[in-house]
Design a protein around this nucleic acid. Structure first.
Lengths: 424, 424
DNA sequence: ACAGTTTCCCGTAAATGC
DNA sequence: TGCATTTACGGGAAACTG
């Protein structure tokens, strides 16, 4: 009867940060013929608090508001709230969140109530949001978003707050669609088959090739990648953030192969002209991108070099395209040279990146313009050996994933915090 | 009788930022022989609000606390408050601060009251802080600090909240001592005679040489430097911040001449070996540092070059010492060379800066280490002509300025906000 | 339109809690 | 002690407000 709907904010709905404003909008879907008085809607956070031990929050701002006729629609009533959430202090020991679940797995909800009388008949309306994650710092946003994705991927239940008590597994096929959808939503371009295959193998090992392996929630977002201090999703999200902040045009031009194993990388580059390079995300560090180029030694052997990955700090000093343009290697202290000639497979560097270069003349007159240049110093001995691997396929266009938008309808439209994205 | 005293925080006392905690400490200087009950102190902000139209604030946290015996002293009573300040909302139009004074010129105060009875005699105690400046964003901190300096430099009145209604002028001699004191306090090394002379000339023009020219408050902190979009103090403070964040060791080694006019710079460098350079702060941009070096053209003429000033953004990508070490000039596209050889007057570059270089091997194994290098590209035609100027004196050690600490005693110890400095 | 001022909130660091 | 979580607040930018 009443249903919350319609978008307000784009980015990461269903995640609320304490102390930061968020908005919700509730709309009455049936038209009430005779409402000569004001219809009040009341918001409650965690109205029917589930038995589990979770943190408790309350809405700081006033939680009651009168519905209004929507300007743009056909006379529907709606109301938009702007709230602040704050955690309740625990007087007697029993701190909320205990043991098993992490705070980003703890699900909450917003309830909306209204009551009105028509011809002596009292009608109660009530509706409630999809499960929400409450965080206290943006550093928890990736974890929270992982939960929102997993929930909406794997259940149609509107309000299973105990979902992460025993979270189901996800088939790799489904999951990979969601991952690609993340990239197309947040970075403007999804992931192609090869990129997803690399991710599948990273997540599942050899099982990836199996028909449809199931991925556990833990493996996806909770346990660390073997030998690394971060989980699969943390790693992937750090890359997404790197793209959003520093690599958007390069990513959208499809110049970043990004997800390629080192083995595959060598196979690809091996047969190419010396000076051919490709761009790949670091697997060992969060949010890093590197380039690998191939060159031929004096004796005809093939050598591969990868630069130390660039992270957001470096990239905010120097845009990535400029790094590629200006990168120089000094071998044995002589004549610096840019070893990057062709973007894999064979696009001349300047043809690919030319439009993305920053011409930085900076004519502050009395001064000599200066710029930073990325340099590597090498001794002429460096060399490495390629290994053989199955041969690659040409890149594909990424699939489209509208599917989820249905599931996320309420979410996206209704609850969204302002921690979204910092616009620059 | 009661007097607020003793330090808690070091950095910028007497400036309070709304919504950020600050601490105050009040101490009872006389020992009360018989106090068998708790002595309560109450804090009030702007207790006797002056008639002028100023913003109104209130203390968010509880403002009453019981005095305690200080652990380390001889039984004195004291109490430390931790407060939050918030601006009152103005219901009926009359927004506080109007017209004439800017918010950082608006002076406020904290009052402390206590009342106790000895042998039937009721005694009221009251004391009050030195004038305070209330800001809402750290971007106002330089302006606020200018006010605190000016007040404490020019008056001994404990509580003249109308001070900036008609602020007195400062003699350049006094003022220059305060400026040097800023540098020695916040950057560890004060200003020498030459540096101060340059500042004096910048502030006063030719009058600087006069016996003791008076500087107006407006000229110091309010009106912009002719042709520049910032005031003298804003400019100087931006340099102080740059030093604190990026140049501390170089500054403390006295390697930054910093405040030299371009004319003087040429005079100094002219007679020196080619490759001699000095470090100077930008006068055209906020918080920038540049180096100027001298070289001799083919035909024996003297040329001066200054690099585009480095600001905090660039410096956080690459420390200044490394910039000096690695700086290269490419003339006509060939052989990059570092033109910086001797720090003025004749210290070999590496001898001066060697200890400050960052050796950045960054052995992330499979990768080739990479670093940023500052480069300028020049056409071989650039040239400039020196002008003649009076000759300089050798550097001096900066004077000491304990003088002010007396004046600032109460201030420093009693009210200090936590926006001080970000420790790294 | 605009300048002075405040609010907003991310992102890092520190503090806190368990 | 170490890890998870929250708090603190600087700093950039947007929003506000006469």
């Amino acid at each position: 009867e009443k249903q919350p709907c319609m978008p307000t904010h784009p980015q990461k709905p269903l995640i609320i940060k304490t102390g930061v404003q968020f908005t919700t909008k509730v709309r009455l879907l049936v038209k009430l013929p005779e409402v000569d008085y004001q219809l009040k809607v009341k918001t409650t956070f965690d109205k029917d608090l589930p038995p589990g031990r979770v943190r408790q929050f309350f809405i700081l701002t006033n939680n009651t508001k009168v519905m209004d006729i929507e300007d743009y629609s056909n006379g529907c009533l709606s109301v938009e709230f702007r709230h602040l959430l704050k955690e309740k202090k625990y007087i007697n020991g029993t701190k909320g969140n205990e043991g098993l679940l992490s705070v980003t797995e703890e699900l909450h909800s917003l309830s909306f109530e209204a009551c009105f009388t028509v011809q002596g008949l009292t009608i109660d309306l009530e509706t409630c949001s999809l499960p929400l994650v409450v965080i206290s710092n943006v550093s928890q946003l990736p974890g929270g978003w992982a939960s929102v994705m997993w929930y909406n991927l794997l259940t149609d239940e509107p309000r299973n707050l105990a979902f992460f008590g025993n979270p189901p597994r996800a088939g790799w096929t489904q999951l990979s669609e969601v991952l690609s959808w993340q990239f197309s939503t947040f970075a403007g371009r999804g992931l192609n088959k090869e990129q997803l295959a690399m991710l599948g193998e990273k997540l599942l090992g050899q099982h990836a090739s199996c028909s449809d392996y199931q991925v556990s929630w833990s493996k996806f977002a909770k346990e660390n990648i073997p030998g690394k201090p971060f989980s699969f999703w943390m790693w992937l999200d750090s890359i997404l953030e790197l793209i959003k902040k520093h690599l958007l045009p390069v990513w959208n031009e499809n110049y970043i192969m990004g997800f390629v194993s080192k083995e595959m990388e060598r196979v690809l580059l091996k047969a190419r002209e010396p000076g051919t390079f490709l761009l790949r995300f670091s697997e060992s560090h969060l949010g890093g991108i590197t380039f690998t180029w191939v060159e031929h030694g004096e004796n005809g052997d093939v050598k591969f070099n990868s630069v130390e990955p660039y992270t957001k700090n470096r990239l905010s000093a120097l845009p990535f395209a400029d790094i590629i343009r200006d990168y120089k290697v000094i071998t044995d202290g002589v004549v610096p040279e840019n070893p990057l000639k062709f973007l894999y497979p064979d696009i001349p560097k300047d043809e690919a990146f030319g439009r993305l270069y920053n011409s930085q003349p900076s004519k502050v007159h009395p001064y000599i313009p200066s710029t930073l240049i990325p340099i590597s110093e090498m001794r002429s001995s460096a060399s490495s050996t390629p290994r053989s691997c199955p041969s690659p396929e040409p890149p594909m266009t990424p699939g489209e994933f509208d599917m989820l938008s249905e599931n996320l309808c309420f979410d996206i439209d209704t609850v969204s915090s302002n921690h979204n994205e910092k616009q620059t």
